[in-house]
Structures are given as C-alpha cells and as structure tokens.
Design a protein around this nucleic acid. Sequence first.
DNA 1: CCCAGTTATACCGATCCTGTATATCTGAGC
DNA 2: GCTCAGATATACAGGATCGGTATAACTGGG
Lengths: 313, 313
Amino acid sequence: MDTHRLRYFLRIADEGSINRAANTLGIAQPALSRQVRLLEEDLGVTLFRRTARGVQLTEEGERLRATTAAPLRQLELAMRYVGSPLARVERGLHIGLPATATGILASPLLDGLSAAFPRVDFQISVASTDVLVEGMLKGAVDISVIDPVQDGRLFYHDLLVEDLVLVGGRTSDLQPGTAIEFAELARRPLILPASPSGIRTSVENTALRLKHRLQSRFSTDSLQVTKSLIEAGRGYGVLPLSACAAEIDARKLRYAPLCDPSLTRQLGVAVTANLELPRGFATRVGEIIREEAARLVGSGVWGARLSPPLSEA
Amino acid sequence: MDTHRLRYFLRIADEGSINRAANTLGIAQPALSRQVRLLEEDLGVTLFRRTARGVQLTEEGERLRATTAAPLRQLELAMRYVGSPLARVERGLHIGLPATATGILASPLLDGLSAAFPRVDFQISVASTDVLVEGMLKGAVDISVIDPVQDGRLFYHDLLVEDLVLVGGRTSDLQPGTAIEFAELARRPLILPASPSGIRTSVENTALRLKHRLQSRFSTDSLQVTKSLIEAGRGYGVLPLSACAAEIDARKLRYAPLCDPSLTRQLGVAVTANLELPRGFATRVGEIIREEAARLVGSGVWGARLSPPLSEA
DNA sequence: CCCAGTTATACCGATCCTGTATATCTGAGC
DNA sequence: GCTCAGATATACAGGATCGGTATAACTGGG
C-alpha cells in the first residue's frame, strides 16, 4: 500500500519488461522483481504473467493499472505543486483542443490540471486551429493544442506526430493489415474538415503534389458528424486512429493505414505571447499537457510519436 | 512522496491534533511529529500552525488536503478491491439518493465506487424516499440512501442524523447565531417537499404535536426549485445545512438554527432483500457509502452525526 | 506562578529497500 | 534435441528510514 511500489508497477506495465523498467527507473532489476513480488503478495493477486520476453499484465494487473494510474498521477501533481505560488492562482483558464484530440486527451488532462492547480477553473473549448488561434489572439483562449502555426504573437512548440488512417463504415473493405495507397483516396468519396485544419491541408497538399483530384462530398467541422456520416456509409474519413478508437473497437467503423505516401498530422501547444497570467503559469500548464500526452503515448493508449521536448535549461 | 505520510497528514488534519491522531493511528506521538516535519521539508511548505491546543492547517496544508484526500482514497479502494471477485462484476448498479444529499455525497461517492469497482457502471437517480423505495421493490434501483423505512422487503440501516435549519433569502433576517423557535415557523410561509419525505413529516408531526398550524404556500420535490423560490423571497425552507452550503457561502441564502424543539433528519442505506447481485456486493457498496459519509462528516464538510455502524463480525 | 497539555528533540533497535552476484527459466535458431 | 541470449528469481549484505522510549521546550489557563 505504497506509492512507491505502485509507481514501479505502472512503469513495468508501460515497458512490458521488468528489465527495461529497472533501467528507466534507475534501480537494479532484482530489486524491482522483489517489489513486484511483494506487491503481489500484499494484494493477493498475480499482476504479471512472466514470459521469456518480458512480462504481461494479467486481468487483475490491468484492473489495478486502470484504477490507480489516474489517482497516483493526481497525487504526484498535487504534491509537486502544493508549494508553488502557481497553485494559488485563482482564475479561469481557457484551454482549446482540436476535436480529434479531445476524446483521448480531455479527461486525463483535466484530472491532472485540477490536481495541480486546485483554485483554477478549467474550461475546455473544442474548435479548429484557426478558431482557436483567433481566440488566443483575442485573449479569450489561454492555451491550446493546435496544428503548427507560424505567428509571432504566439509561442508554439511541437507536441507529437500522429499517423492518419483511412476510416470507413462497417461495410467497407478496410482492414488494419492492408494499407491503402494514397492514389486510392481519389477514387473514394471523402469527408474532410470544413475549415483549413492540419488534416485537411495535409490531405489536399499531398493530392495536389501527386496531381490527384479528390472527391469531397461532405465537409464538416464536427468530428461527431464526420463519424456518423462515415458510419452511415456516406464516405470515408482521414483521421488519426485515436480519434475513433472507441467506434472501431465497437465495430462501428473500420480502418486501414495509408501509404505512398503515408500521412501524418502534427500537434503542438500554443500560448499567447502577451499572457496576463502569473509568470510561468502557462509554461507549467503546457508542461502538464506534454506530460499527459507523453503518458498516454508511453502507455500505448495514444498511438503517436512524441516530438522532442523543450530544452530544459 | 509516500502515501504513508499523506495518510498521517490527513488524519492529523481531521483530528486537529498530532496527539489525538497518534492515538487513533496507533503510533507514538514523536514518530508522528517527525513524519510531519519530514513531509513539510519534502514539500518545502509549512502545513500546520502549531499551537498549545493542537495544530491548525495553513493555507498550503488546506490545499494539500483538498487535492490529495480524494485520490488517496481512490488508491486505497482500488488496492483493497483489486483482488476481490467483486471487482470483476460487470453490471450497471443503480443508486438512489435524496435530493438533499446529492450535492454533498454524489461526487465523492462515485469517485470511490468507480475506484473500487471499475467494471461497474454506476447510475445515480435523485428522488424522494417513496419513489426510491418503489424503485427498489420493482428492482429498478439497487441501493439507496433514504429516510428510515420499515419494510420487510428491504434491508435498512441507519447512516447519520443531520440537524435541520431554517433557510431564507438574502433579504431575510436569519442569522446563524440566533436560533429560531419552532413556533416561529408557523408565522412564516414554508416551502416543503411535495412528497411525504422525512423532512416534511418531521416538520408536520412536530407542528401537530405542538398544535401549530403551518403555512405551506408552495411545495415541490425539486430541491433546485425550492432553493430558487427561497432565493426569490417566496418563503422559507427547512433543510439540512449541507443541502444549501454553496448558496449560503455565495450569500444567496441565509439560515438560522431551529430550537424548541430542534429538528433533525435521519438518513440510512437500504437495499432490496432479494438482490440479483453477487453475494456481498451490495453489502460492500453499502460499506463504501458509509465510509464516504464518515469521511465527509469526519472532515467537517458534512455537519452531521454518524449513526453507530453495523456490527462487524 | 504553576500545571496540564501540547509539540519537538535525541537516541536506539528493527525493518525495509537497494545493489551485487548468481541461479533458473524460456523461447528462438540451428 | 541442444545451445544460447535474454528474461526473471533468489541470496546476502550494507544503508537508509521508521517507529518506540525518554525527555525537553513551549503555551494558555487557573
């Protein structure tokens, strides 16, 4: 019943190996093995199946991970920031997220942020990059996760890169194992974002470069609408897998990777340059966004690749 | 960064004294003093003001308590139940709460329950006792917090007793320091629950016994409506303080204690006798409700008195 | 001024954690 | 079937941390 062992356990679950976890934790492997055994004895359950290529969570282990990861993270943040003057900030902070990242990011992010900054009311707006940028320049939005932008009035830093996949309805012929060539996209009706989002420009620029002509029958800025149109068989979507994981699990949607070329979308964190916030606050919030994203990526929940972090002076 | 010290810290905060906390924790006082000092050094903040009559939380201490109590409890429950077959139950559990307890109980209760039973979808219904009892007998509601009932088809056990206060609008003359006699109630327009709830019968029976005639101008089963009517100056309400703490803090409502006689309302936990649930599951859920209530009462958030617990064989 | 009650300090023994060295196990490749 | 690489498990010793006992220092109240 100690955070210590729990942190070890979670790291092992992430790494899938006691050995690798011992390395990243900076302790010796036998010590870690021992802690796992003690934790298992304490709880009276087997947490891992030991194999010759590492360890694998049992059902109980998976349950423990699911129920302890978030509270443990909240504790860590709460203790880290309790001494910080930033924790005293009383204010509303307005966070902007793109629709294609809310499903995976919103809830854990709010958990973490409210643990670190209990006096702050966090508000989340879901909108396209251009709307969020406008909101930030007006001062209505404080910090956003958006597509890359070049604007001197914003601080922007890359967060992660995510592969895009082709998503179709239940009756489509898409299979995760069979990649679809980009040229094939031109022969299928596409449902693209209405506003010039990162995904849409990525798709359109590639089409232009390869001299393909796309059929875009519908366009909408609502991810919800996009997915229901796809589900109804009205067309195909180009989306990050994380944005429709639930529907794919539920067999409502199918997907296939893209190739020749594959497409990606880049996300980053942006804050306004002239923030009326306590010094360092926005930076910390940005760090927590990064940490939360790193955690989701590291645990395999978010299939993306992290961009290199900000240099830590 | 150890649950150990955090638990000690929270207990001290609850008891208001290192000495008393040491007794209830079963360790020596110097050891506990030491742990507090170490925790304060770790975090770099002063958590308590030491006085000759105990200790008092500083602002940072209060913040730490607010941000760590819930996650810590979730961790404890998650670890306690990870090995239990009950944690594998996949089912929806329908919980009934009275409107006057939801505000204070719903959120922490859901936190705790979902940590203990991750596979269960908890649904909360807010209704009056008679509706909840009916729902439980029909099997639509599994477990409820309700006024005391005598019904052989239900298992019922007392949970806590709470004082009722007179609540008026912002312009009323009520003051927390000046108790209002019951006789005075008859001279004020009251807004009482429409259904025969515990609060309403308590008020009406007392009036009958003392031969007072009440003026009940409006009645509604919605606590929301009740409070907005009171706020608009349409009348007075008889409510537990916990049901309108937020509005009183916000200076939208005022209150005064009742005397001659004072009124209370009793709450208990009830489950149907013929549950189609795994053996012991409802019992455990009931225990968690009790624990959560005890925690809220112990920390002073819920100004009520616990009923004696079930005998623990 | 004294006393009861509180928190803080000093020291000691026991426990738990970690690192080093080594054993054991398992799956892949020949 | 055998071997080997890579993984986890066991044994033992050193060191840090925790809790207990004894005692000091502090603060209000009578």
